[in-house]
Amino acid sequence: MADQWALVATELVKNFGSKCAVDGVDIRVPTGCIYGVLGPNGAGKTTTLRMLLGIIDPDSGHRELLGTTRPRSVSHRIGYLPEERGLYSNMKAREAIAFMGALRGLPWAEGRKRAEILLENAGLGFATHDKIKKLSKGMSQFVQLLGSIVHQPEFIVLDEPFSGLDPVNQGRLEKLILGERDRGATVLFSTHIMAHAERLCDRLAIIAGGKLRYEGSVDEARATLPMQAHYTPRDNDPALAALLPADAVRENGSWRFPVPESGMEAMLGTLLESGHGIAGLSIERPSLHEVFVALVGEKAVEEMEADAGEEIAA
């Protein structure tokens, strides 16, 4: 595998009994990028990550991680935050991070030094000597996250890292992910929260029902749908609807519709001649949310947003 790819996986398939959890997924992660795996709960994201890391083997397909087809042989070069969280409750935060580094070959003394720096940089320096059982759920989860990167891995895999974090810790995590990318690491994370994927990812895969629905950059994903026009007339004449595309939707006194393939010029001329005028006009790219709806359907998006809302409330 060329150095430009930290990970290449093709046609991954995994069945559990009669259920196909992952059905022919292809993923290519460039070295040094932030890559997101986006999809609703139960989409097959965790199973995919575990196959990529060699925790479980695919029933068929090919995977190559950091130049080897045996992912577990390079585990010391990888940082992994699993979906299941758990630390020794009587350990202090610094010791818990150093312990996780030691499991990857990092000397204890160096692990403690790095742990103090990581906690301080994350705004958690006050908790350095606190036991895990005294920390909030979000803080203890963040300690485990720091433990997964203390050995400065080349490739970092985070399974639903934002799950259960309050907005403050979500912001800390976004900053940390960007910092690790700037350090030169490749970061792969799964999420069902589109805002994080849209803000952070250089590339992403959208998975639903165990199948790959899209793979590429965020900009390329948004380019799969036409540009959207937001038009505000100078009047509220109901007759205006007849001059707009049939799929135009009214939103709080304005209209929203895909930009026609022929462009906006002819339509704008008609609107001006009709006397409705133009009080406001903007043309925007579709959001990742709109792309996701087009690929997997409104129901899946509603379920993802409901799950995200429950996590924030918790």
Results as ranks from 00 to 15, higher is better:
29 V>P: 09
29 V>I: 15
29 V>C: 10
29 V>D: 05
30 P>M: 04
30 P>S: 01
30 P>L: 00
31 T>K: 12
32 G>E: 11
33 C>L: 10
33 C>F: 06
34 I>N: 04
34 I>H: 07
34 I>F: 12
35 Y>P: 13
36 G>S: 14
37 V>R: 10
37 V>E: 01
37 V>A: 06
38 L>V: 11
39 G>F: 06
39 G>I: 06
39 G>N: 10
39 G>Y: 04
40 P>I: 02
40 P>D: 11
40 P>T: 04
41 N>G: 08
41 N>Q: 12
41 N>P: 15
42 G>S: 11
43 A>N: 05
43 A>E: 07
44 G>N: 03
47 T>P: 07
48 T>R: 09
49 L>A: 07
49 L>D: 02
50 R>D: 10
50 R>W: 05
50 R>I: 10
52 L>S: 11
52 L>Q: 10
52 L>Y: 08
53 L>Q: 13
53 L>M: 15
53 L>S: 13
55 I>K: 13
56 I>T: 14
57 D>H: 15
57 D>A: 14
58 P>V: 13
59 D>P: 03
61 G>H: 02
61 G>F: 01
62 H>P: 07
62 H>V: 15
62 H>A: 12
65 L>M: 04
65 L>S: 00
66 L>K: 03
66 L>E: 03
67 G>I: 10
68 T>A: 11
68 T>C: 05
69 T>W: 00
69 T>C: 03
70 R>W: 01
70 R>A: 03
70 R>Y: 04
71 P>A: 00
71 P>S: 00
72 R>I: 07
73 S>P: 02
73 S>D: 10
74 V>R: 11
74 V>C: 01
74 V>S: 09
75 S>M: 04
76 H>Q: 02
76 H>W: 08
77 R>G: 00
77 R>Q: 13
77 R>Y: 02
78 I>Y: 00
78 I>W: 01
79 G>C: 00
79 G>P: 00
79 G>R: 00
79 G>A: 03
80 Y>D: 12
82 P>H: 09
82 P>C: 06
82 P>V: 06
83 E>Y: 11
84 E>M: 11
85 R>E: 08
85 R>K: 08
85 R>Y: 04
86 G>F: 12
88 Y>V: 11
88 Y>L: 14
88 Y>S: 09
88 Y>C: 14
89 S>I: 15
89 S>W: 15
89 S>G: 12
89 S>R: 15
90 N>E: 15
90 N>Q: 13
90 N>A: 04
92 K>S: 06
94 R>F: 07
95 E>H: 12
95 E>A: 09
95 E>P: 07
95 E>Y: 06
98 A>D: 02
98 A>Y: 00
99 F>A: 10
99 F>S: 04
101 G>M: 01
101 G>D: 00
102 A>M: 14
103 L>W: 06
103 L>Y: 01
103 L>T: 05
105 G>C: 08
105 G>V: 13
105 G>Q: 14
106 L>G: 01
106 L>M: 09
106 L>K: 04
107 P>A: 09
107 P>E: 05
107 P>W: 01
108 W>G: 05
108 W>V: 07
108 W>A: 05
109 A>S: 15
110 E>C: 01
110 E>S: 06
111 G>K: 07
111 G>N: 03
112 R>K: 11
113 K>E: 12
114 R>W: 03
115 A>L: 11
116 E>V: 02
116 E>I: 02
116 E>W: 00
117 I>R: 15
117 I>A: 13
117 I>P: 01
118 L>R: 00
118 L>K: 01
119 L>Q: 14
119 L>Y: 09
120 E>K: 15
